[in-house]
Design a protein around this nucleic acid. Structure first.
Length: 637
DNA sequence: ATAGGGTTAG
């Protein structure tokens, strides 16, 4: 009996232990406390919270304390039941009458408050505790960084170091989430390297993820490559880093490497791989992943990524089917479908989809509304768009942001209301950025308003001095009005800023192989045959009214095409190759790195009709489905 | 007792 008693009372501090002999003298008393403690302990382990709380109250009356381990069990009970009131009673009991809980137990209490989202209570405990160890500090850092109070989390790290407590891998992986800038990230990385914690998989994935967040992919890759210690999550971090930063090629390379290393992809891996396919418009590879997916239980994130892949690879039939298969559609499923429909030229269907979404009870978010306005702008629904825009705050509780204004500029601009568009830019609350001005510039191109185009182009270049296309456009505008000096000045500034226009490039997937056509690059093995065929097509199209468009004033030209009428844009070559290499019923799908030019657009429309084929081109901005002599973009792009 | 990865945007 004695041994049991002492085991249960072992954490009683000396001041209380003095009273112990008197307790032992009264036989029934000690028996009763023993019974109480047993009852308490077993209730905790049985997760019987009410019984445990009854026992706790009796213990309170008899001034009995259990050990830290049992209290931790009780805290687990409270957490499991979501019982905040009870948790506070436990806290009170543990701190009553001079009982000095150990650091371990206070940490557990703090952690409990954190899990209940009661940061103030946790912090109060932290402030009052006498001995803070690594876990105490790390608990606070993790709590504040999870609450997105990055600054506070970083402060805790500073204080911790100043107090001479050494961070461990838990600390670093937590604090990395709160890193608020590249300098502090580099500093923390240094600290990690010094302590040798850079081999810990948690720390490594957090580092990779953070470098990725700041777009520092070379650093992310270095962290990944310099250590052998990797698990699936580290692989997922690095694959995700490239997939999210529009470097799908590298993401796919890493994915291959991962499989060679014997790792099994999970849902997160495949989500990133699908995103890489989406970025590269690799429909066939995306389909292969889809087949592979059939062996998995698909969760919502993965389903959404698959849906988006089909949308962005221009296969709306597949997208619609996958969308219908998602049982618990969330706001992202709906938004993806709405945006996918709108981008592919099915604006009315996109707006119907939005109504279905509203009646399904799913609340739209910021991005959904961008999609809705985008759909209105592509369908030329000025009034409808305006009404959504003006009522979005009232109806959906979403304050119009830069992107919403951008859609409205697009909507008004496309509809020819350029004055109204510029008025909107002037009075918009978020500062217009380069994208806003580029949108206005796009509208000026459609409506051939040179003066406003020049103004918009200058604003774009103020905000984005690396935008090669806009320099060329502005210089062409000046040249057109014989302002040769201004034109030369623009080209000079462009060279001075070391900005170079990347050459036009188009990709087409044939038999699981990617064929790339680059302007001025004749390395494709069948280039001669393709050019001969292209010449034939041009001649035949001229007979049905095709006039090659040489008005490049409001277009940014890929190269010096005027000098050389035989120098074809890359998408023309890709289309012709597609016609040659893909059997009749197959759609011709092309991805292009720049915006399609007016001449190629007309060429594609006429050729698709003449050959009775469906041609899909995804350019830098949007999708063009050419069929029967028309394009899904309605000639607005 | 404390920690890491994946989905929608002009």
């Amino acid at each position: 009996m004695k041994s049991i008693l002492f085991r249960n009372l072992k954490s009683i501090p000396p001041t209380v232990a003095v009273a112990l002999p008197s307790l032992l003298m009264h036989h029934h008393h000690s028996l009763q406390s023993n019974t109480l403690l047993n009852e308490f302990t077993s209730s905790c382990y049985r997760r019987d919270l009410p019984a445990a709380m009854r026992a706790l109250t009796s213990m309170q009356n008899h001034r009995i304390w259990a050990d830290s381990v049992t209290y931790s069990e009780l805290i687990k009970c409270c957490l499991a039941c979501g019982a905040i009131q009870e948790a506070k009673l436990v806290h009170k009991h543990i701190f009553s009458d001079g009982y000095q809980p150990k650091t371990f137990l206070i940490n557990t209490l703090m952690n409990m408050y954190v899990k209940f989202n009661l940061l103030n209570e946790a912090r109060e405990l932290f402030d009052q505790m006498p001995d803070r160890n690594v876990v105490s500090w790390t608990t606070m850092i993790a709590a504040f960084s999870n609450a997105r109070l990055d600054h506070e989390a970083m402060e805790f790290l500073t204080l911790m170091l100043r107090n001479g407590v050494h961070p461990n891998m838990f600390t670093y992986s937590s604090v990395l989430q709160a890193c608020n800038g590249l300098p502090s990230l580099r500093q923390i990385h240094c600290g990690i390297t010094k302590t040798g914690l850079d081999s810990d998989v948690f720390v490594r994935s957090a580092l990779i993820d953070n470098y990725s967040k700041w777009g520092e992919l070379p650093n992310a890759l270095t962290v990944f490559n310099e250590m052998e210690t990797s698990d699936l999550i580290v692989w997922n971090s690095v694959i995700g880093a490239f997939a999210q930063n529009t470097d799908g090629d590298e993401a796919l390379n890493l994915f291959k490497r991962m499989k060679r290393c014997g790792f099994m992809a999970d849902q997160a891996t495949l989500t990133s791989v699908l995103r890489a396919c989406t970025g590269l418009a690799l429909l066939e590879l995306g389909r292969q992943i889809h087949v592979h997916l059939l062996k998995y239980n698909r969760d919502l994130i993965l389903s959404n990524a698959l849906l988006d892949m089909y949308c962005k690879c221009g296969s709306l039939e597949d997208a619609r089917f996958e969308f219908s298969r998602i049982v618990d559609k969330d706001v992202i499923s709906w938004s993806t479908m709405i945006i996918g429909l709108a981008q592919n030229g099915f604006s009315h269907e996109a707006l119907e989809m939005f109504q279905k979404m509203e009646s399904s009870g799913t609340k739209p978010n910021y991005i959904t509304v961008v999609g809705v306005l985008f759909a209105c702008s592509h369908a030329g629904l000025v009034d409808k768009g305006r009404s959504y825009f003006e009522s979005m705050e009232k109806n959906f509780g979403i304050k119009p942001g830069r992107e919403h204004y951008g859609c409205m500029v697009d909507l008004l601009g496309r509809a020819g209301k350029l004055d109204e568009a510029i008025e909107l830019i002037k009075r918009m609350e978020p500062e217009p950025d380069a994208v806003t001005w580029r949108t206005l510039l796009g509208a000026c191109r459609i409506h051939r308003n040179m003066d406003l185009a020049a103004y918009a182009a200058k604003r774009v270049l103020d905000l984005d001095p690396d935008d090669a296309g806009t320099y060329i456009l502005l210089s062409n505008i000046y040249a057109n009005s014989h302002r040769w000096e201004d034109a030369a000045q623009v080209r000079k500034t462009m060279r001075g800023n070391n900005v170079r226009k990347e050459p036009g490039c188009s990709w087409i997937e044939v038999n699981k192989q990617i064929h790339a056509f680059i302007l001025r690059d004749n390395s494709h093995p069948e280039i001669d045959k393709i050019v001969r065929q292209l010449n034939k097509y041009v001649e035949r199209l001229k007979e049905v009214g095709y006039v090659p468009d040489s008005n490049f004033v409001l277009q940014d030209v890929e190269g010096e095409q005027m000098e050389d009428p035989l120098l074809y844009h890359s998408e023309k070559l890709a289309i012709v190759y597609g016609l040659m290499a893909l059997t009749k019923g197959k759609n011709i799908r092309i991805r292009k790195n720049l915006r399609i030019c007016g001449d190629c657009h007309l060429f594609a429309k006429l050729l698709a009709k003449m050959e009775n084929r469906h041609v899909v081109i995804r350019d830098q901005i949007r999708y063009h489905h050419f069929e029967g002599g028309v394009c899904s973009c309605g000639d607005y792009w």
